[in-house]
Amino acid sequence: LRLEVKLGQGCFGEVWMGTWNGTTRVAIKTLKPGTMSPEAFLQEAQVMKKLRHEKLVQLYAVVSEEPIYIVTEYMSKGSLLDFLKGETGKYLRLPQLVDMAAQIASGMAYVERMNYVHRDLRAANILVGENLVCKVADFGLARLIEDNEYTARQGAKFPIKWTAPEAALYGRFTIKSDVWSFGILLTELTTKGRVPYPGMVNREVLDQVERGYRMPCPPECPESLHDLMCQCWRKEPEERPTFEYLQAFL
């Protein structure tokens, strides 16, 4: 395994491009020591290896001592969030954005069929390849993070704006909380990567959403798509659509 080009840095580690087995181009995620327990990670990795779908980033291998390494397929255009905010983002029109959403829903419909939960679905965790191919990455890892700023769910590192209220408040993460996050991801797509709930801080978002506030229809977004977002944001988790439905609708 060779680490060649550093692609990015996040709160919990770095991402590199490299070569595996001398020939395969891969992405390598390294986790800061202390982010998660190697034992817990190894268990999760076994499950992650079983998830194989064309719209999920394929896991190739893991190094399960500290520092933990995760070796996955390489996606040339990086994260969907950076892609939307970058040069190419300007030229993306609604049909392409909807197609990308459908690809993500397709990957998540598979996660749904496998009775698995992602827990951290957002544009930053979707990767883009050639020809606007989108794949879901980092599934299941969020559960293992041991950082206090994260586990408190009120901490600075927790993605509260993407998280369903029952998950943020009571830790009830299910495929239905993933559906909520998918609704937020749809706003990221239609606004080219704007942060959700602009002008609001995490605490406010939690309070307002509890009181029934939902983001309005983004500019140039059809009402039918906003309606779909609002279905994803129904207060009762069981009233939210399935990913199978979302995939078919898109």
Rank of each mutant, 00 (worst) to 15 (best):
L1E: 00
L1F: 04
V5G: 15
K6V: 15
L7D: 13
L7T: 15
G8V: 00
Q9C: 09
V15T: 02
V15E: 02
V15L: 01
W16N: 15
T19L: 12
T19E: 13
W20K: 15
T23R: 14
T23E: 12
T24I: 13
R25M: 11
V26T: 13
I28F: 09
K29G: 02
T30M: 15
T30L: 14
L31R: 15
T35K: 15
E39C: 09
F41M: 04
L42S: 03
Q43P: 02
E44H: 03
E44I: 00
V47H: 07
K50T: 13
R52F: 09
H53I: 03
V57I: 12
V57Y: 10
Q58D: 15
L59H: 01
Y60W: 10
Y69M: 09
I70F: 03
V71T: 12
M75N: 05
L80N: 04
L81Y: 15
F83C: 11
K85I: 12
K85E: 12
G86W: 11
G86Q: 09
G86I: 09
T88H: 13
T88I: 11
L92H: 09
R93G: 07
L94D: 05
L94Y: 05
I104R: 01
M108P: 02
A109D: 15
V111L: 04
V111R: 00
R122A: 02
A123V: 09
A124R: 03
N125Q: 03
I126S: 04
L132R: 12
V133M: 13
V133L: 11
V133T: 11
A142H: 02
R143F: 03
L144C: 12
E149F: 07
Y150A: 02
T151W: 14
A152S: 05
A152P: 05
R153V: 06
G155Y: 06
K157Y: 02
F158I: 06
K161N: 04
P165C: 14
E166H: 05
L169K: 05
Y170I: 09
G171H: 10
T174G: 10
T174E: 05
I175V: 15
K176G: 14
S181K: 01
F182A: 07
F182S: 02
F182Q: 02
F182D: 02
I184M: 05
L185D: 03
L185W: 14
L186K: 02
E188L: 02
T190R: 00
T191A: 09
T191M: 08
T191F: 11
R194V: 13
V195N: 13
P196I: 06
P196H: 00
Y197G: 00
M200H: 07
M200G: 04
V201E: 13
V201G: 15
N202K: 07
R203A: 09
R203D: 05
Q208I: 15
Q208P: 06
E210I: 09
E210P: 13
R211H: 11
G212W: 04
Y213L: 09
M215Y: 03
M215G: 02
P216K: 09
C217L: 12
P219S: 13
E220Y: 11
P222F: 07
P222M: 09
H226K: 12
Q231S: 10
Q231G: 11
R234A: 11
R234M: 09
P237S: 12
E239G: 13
E239M: 13
P241V: 05
T242Y: 14
F243P: 15
F243R: 01
L246C: 08
L246S: 06
Q247R: 10
Q247H: 11
F249N: 06
